[in-house]
Design a protein around this nucleic acid. Structure first.
Lengths: 193, 193
DNA sequence: CGCGGGTTTGATGATGCTCAAGCCCGGTGG
DNA sequence: CCACCGGGCTTGAGCATCATCAAACCCGCG
């Protein structure tokens, strides 16, 4: 059950995990199953848990005043799900998070996460994780501000091709900040060149 | 010289700073002055220092294949300057960073930053800093993907009004991902309502 | 067979970009 | 002192990109 998470943590840590560290991880990460379409978080709630995706696929999005969904984050195996800001600041979230497929998560509360951070190897792993997260966001800001729809799609296809297999186009389109019609055209035009 | 930085760190830490912590900070943060237009970092270089802005204003931007500048980050007093990804991964940066006004920085190397992180109060402060940074990026991704030019400008004016005083409109426009002409129109239209 | 979810295609329109011109204003040098 | 220049801001006309709305299609499934 916890194996994918342990493997993941090992890629982040600079030292091998000790037995006791492995025990703590198994203890604080509690499994949770979500059915397709089931909510993990709803707007207005405080995000009490971060979830490591063991299997399945999830979607994090806002709903604007016109009722349109704006996908902010997609998560598949070996990614995280949760609203980090709500989780760390204990503020109500602006996001919905739900399962796009039946999904298995390993969830950890904020208090337990502090316990983890106290262990040297895991504290280091977590700060690396936060860094990676920040870098990914940095790239997305860049892409969103300075690339066209076609370029953004090409970049996604290059960087995270797995997403394209797992989510339908209208979800991908929203993630890219464009409409499904535009995505459809952008995908088909290059084929005709 | 270091007072603004110490005050800033105190807002991040949960415990008062000890004498020895203050000493370490004064030791590892070395002052640097930049003249207007002077580079702090150039594309292709590895970012060796992060800089805390004591006075002045700085600009971080990429230059695309057509020679157009895309402003990614603006920094004034009590903000940081530097390419965090290049700094932590030791990879060549895609950014230029230069001084928009004459600027005084307190710079810290990566090695010295690790020394700081080892002290409990400062390690905590730094991880909070990283978190804040991530939250700000998260908001920007949202804004870039789901708001119009007018809405993005309004949000900036609300969130960081100080920027509007310190940078000319064409710089603000680039930061928002729009052209200076569009920004000019967006600013003047609401006035006529 | 019909239905729901997803994708495609077309017509139209809004938003924002490009290119070009003109204005304002604060230097700087004759 | 004034003429000029550069940087910044504005305005306008035309255009590209992308959104919207609507219709049709496709296909897996009850």
């Amino acid at each position: 059950m916890h194996d994918p998470l342990l493997a993941y943590v090992r890629t982040l840590a600079s030292t091998p995990l000790t037995e006791s560290e492995i025990d703590v991880i198994k203890q604080v990460f509690v499994p949770k199953k979500l059915r397709k379409k089931q909510y993990f978080l709803q707007e207005g709630d405080v995000c009490q848990f971060m979830g490591f995706v063991v299997s399945g696929a999830m979607r994090q999005y806002t709903v604007d005043s016109k009722g349109v969904e704006h996908v902010f984050q997609l998560s598949i195996e070996n990614w995280w799900a949760g609203d980090l800001e709500s989780y760390t600041m204990l503020t109500p979230s602006r996001y919905y998070i739900d399962a796009w497929e039946d999904t298995t998560l390993l969830t950890v509360s904020k208090a337990d996460k502090y316990e983890l951070a106290a262990l040297p190897a895991l504290g280091e792993a977590m700060s690396r994780l936060d860094q990676r997260h920040a870098f990914a966001l940095q790239h997305r800001v860049n892409a969103a501000l300075s690339l066209s729809a076609e370029e953004r799609y090409a970049e996604l296809a290059r960087t995270y091709p797995a997403f394209l297999q797992r989510f339908p186009q209208h979800v991908i389109a929203s993630y890219l900040g464009i409409t499904k019609e535009t995505l459809s055209r952008v995908r088909n035009l290059p084929a005709k060149k």
